[in-house]
Amino acid sequence: MNERLKALADAGVSIWLDDLSRARLTSGNLQELIDEKSVVGVTTNPTIFAGALSNGESYAEQVKQLKAEGADTLKAIRTMLPDDVRDACDVFAPIYESSKGFDGRVSIEVDPRLANDTDETIARAKLLYDLVDRPNVLVKIPATLSGLPAISATIAAGISVNVTLIFSVERYRQVLEAYMTGLESAAEAGKDLSSIHSVASFFVSRVDTEIDKRLNAIGSDEAKALKGRAAIANARLAYKLFEETIASDRWQALAAKGANPQRPLWASTGVKDPSYDDTMYVAQLVVDGVVNTMPEKTLNAYGDHGVTEGDTITGNYDDAQKVFDELKAVGIDMDDVFELLETEGVDKFIVSWNELLETVGQALAKA
């Protein structure tokens, strides 16, 4: 067992890997990561699946079979991707059971082209849940304005959700509201709230990437001194909101009915700027009860030289707010930053989905 990663897990951070492939499953690599690197969950997306499909022979036989059956590209995706997620769910089943549903989770993403279509997102979330047919699957729904009511409806139906693409504390506030609204509807329908879980994926590194670019453009010493500080401050303020929410009367009423808190999940935790510490978005966001979903490069970096120093969030709210005040003072329009990041995020998700369609289409054509 890697001691550095074990220390992170012992501090209360659930380590999820941001990657999944059939080769990981069939080779036993995923089980090795569980046994040796404290990995207790997996997230995946169209880019990851497209890469897995194009970089190995693990899918070749199934692609041939699907082609022989006359499957089109969408049918092939709706077969192969849920198959991988289902198999991963089975690998993680013991962790799911032992953690009472908080970990042992595998995420699968709703078609991002539906990010601004509430009704279709709800329908597709139900379809994916049925296709995977495992209790430890999390259906990923983006936190767009159209996604918020879809999150509520999906939770109300008893389906656990990974809310993705959250950048701002204000949007996170709306996500928490959507989760509680869904739980309240589920309770009214007589559903067992203890069986419903959710994580809120708060994106980290992309915030610094965009704000650092703007700070460089401003060019002052005051601006440059703020580089690499916005994303961590933003995440810490999000956790402050989480604490305030679970202390509220509304949440306490749901908790009394067995509801589980929607855990904060730090996403996009791979460092984009090579001049930064490659473990900063892990080490500086430690507190009991959160999830950090890491690309394997970041996982290995932390395993090699990451240092866990206990809670690095809850004592730093004043400093985080000070960073935001200073960003505003030097001329950073945070509302514009977050709006741009969400728009770009949806666009990137759609590009990834289209690349997946192309990759699967080419695989079928060659089979």
Rank of each mutant, 00 (worst) to 15 (best):
V282I: 15
K272L: 14
L254F: 03
K297R: 13
L131Q: 12
V40L: 10
G219W: 06
V40M: 11
V351M: 08
K64D: 11
T118N: 04
S275L: 07
N216L: 04
K64R: 06
E61D: 15
V175D: 10
A60V: 09
V199E: 12
V132C: 01
G28E: 12
P46E: 04
S152N: 11
S194T: 03
E339A: 14
T312R: 13
V360H: 01
A178Y: 00
S194F: 08
H197D: 08
F242H: 13
H305E: 09
I246C: 15
I246W: 07
D130T: 08
A50R: 08
D133M: 03
E120V: 04
Q362C: 06
K67M: 04
A256G: 13
S21G: 13
L53V: 08
R263N: 12
Y276I: 10
A93D: 11
T144S: 08
D273L: 03
D83F: 11
D304R: 15
L74Q: 04
K191M: 11
V161Y: 02
S152Y: 15
I34P: 03
P94K: 14
L226W: 09
D72Y: 02
D111P: 00
A187M: 10
E69C: 00
A93P: 11
A283I: 01
E170D: 13
V271E: 06
P142S: 11
A60P: 00
I15A: 05
N162T: 04
N300I: 12
L254N: 08
S248L: 05
A255N: 05
T293N: 02
L8P: 06
A230W: 03
A230K: 07
T118K: 05
E244M: 02
W266V: 04
K100W: 06
K227V: 05
I350P: 00
G51P: 02
G306A: 02
L237E: 04
A60T: 15
T73D: 02
Y59M: 01
L8K: 07
L341C: 12
T312Y: 08
G289W: 10
S168Q: 07
T73N: 03
I232V: 09
V106H: 00
T118R: 08
N29D: 12
A178E: 04
L265C: 14
M1W: 06
E97I: 03
I166N: 08
L193N: 14
D347H: 10
F49D: 14
A50H: 01
V330R: 07
G315Y: 03
V91A: 01
L183H: 08
E188G: 14
A9Y: 12
I141W: 11
A52N: 07
G345K: 10
A230M: 06
Y281I: 10
E32S: 14
S185W: 02
V39D: 13
T181P: 00
E244A: 14
D87C: 05
A283K: 06
T43F: 00
E32I: 05
Y276W: 00
A235K: 08
